[in-house]
């Protein structure tokens, strides 16, 4: 028989997500680790099973998966109120800090030292983007003969964008339709989608 427990107050819930949103730098696994540690292990508002199921569903969401995860967990904890408080608690303070940091960088953007620093950050940002793409493509290597279709989608998207042959949005819609028709041999795994 399930244990009936009263949902936490909005203030307590907001505080938990504020901690998650502002203590995790760099996103991805560090944020996921904090969500699990705070909501499952420390506060006990979510069971391991609920966390695992919400995480799996969030990997199918558009946009930032962690937002979907916050919404799904918030709904489990406190219904509609939980969704709003959880997503706002994780996103709004972190977004304000991000915008302020952008404003501060803008103030010194023309300083020679900033320009020099950015000349090194540019290659890192580009390298990270390429690295993330390779990480997303890596599961292809474990798919045997079916990998040919997967590689074809990746190469086609790369070539089309570099050649300017079609708009980005067209490539995404076409790949979605192609995937629905030909790539649905198995359910997606978490490693197929980028963690964010």
């Amino acid at each position: 028989m399930p244990i009936v427990k009263s949902p936490p107050t909005s203030r307590a819930l907001a505080r938990a997500w504020l901690d998650i949103g502002t203590q995790s730098v760099g996103g991805g696994s560090s944020t996921l680790f904090l969500i699990r540690r705070i909501l499952v292990e420390r506060l006990g508002w979510i069971t391991v099973r609920e966390f695992t199921e919400a995480w799996a569903l969030s990997q199918l969401s558009p946009g930032i998966h962690l937002v979907a995860l916050a919404g799904l967990l918030g709904r489990t904890i406190a219904g509609s109120r939980g969704v709003i408080v959880s997503v706002a608690g994780m996103m709004v303070p972190a977004a304000i800090i991000t915008a302020i940091a952008t404003a501060l960088l803008g103030e010194v953007a023309r300083h020679p030292l900033t320009i020099a620093g950015l000349s090194g950050i540019g290659p890192v940002a580009g390298g990270m983007t390429i690295g993330l793409a390779l990480t997303m493509a890596r599961p292809v290597l474990q798919r045997g003969r079916w990998a040919v279709l997967d590689v074809a989608v990746i190469v086609a998207a790369l070539g089309i964008l570099l050649a300017g042959a079609a708009q980005t949005i067209v490539v995404i819609f076409a790949a979605g339709a192609f995937g629905a028709a030909l790539l649905g041999r198995e359910r997606p795994t978490s490693s197929d989608a980028p963690m964010s």
Partner: peptide, 15 residues
């Protein structure tokens, strides 16, 4: 699942 996979793979190429 195939749709998500197709979009993910295309995104890898676009990225």
């Amino acid at each position: 699942g195939g749709l998500v996979r197709g979009v993910s793979l295309a995104t890898a190429g676009l990225l």
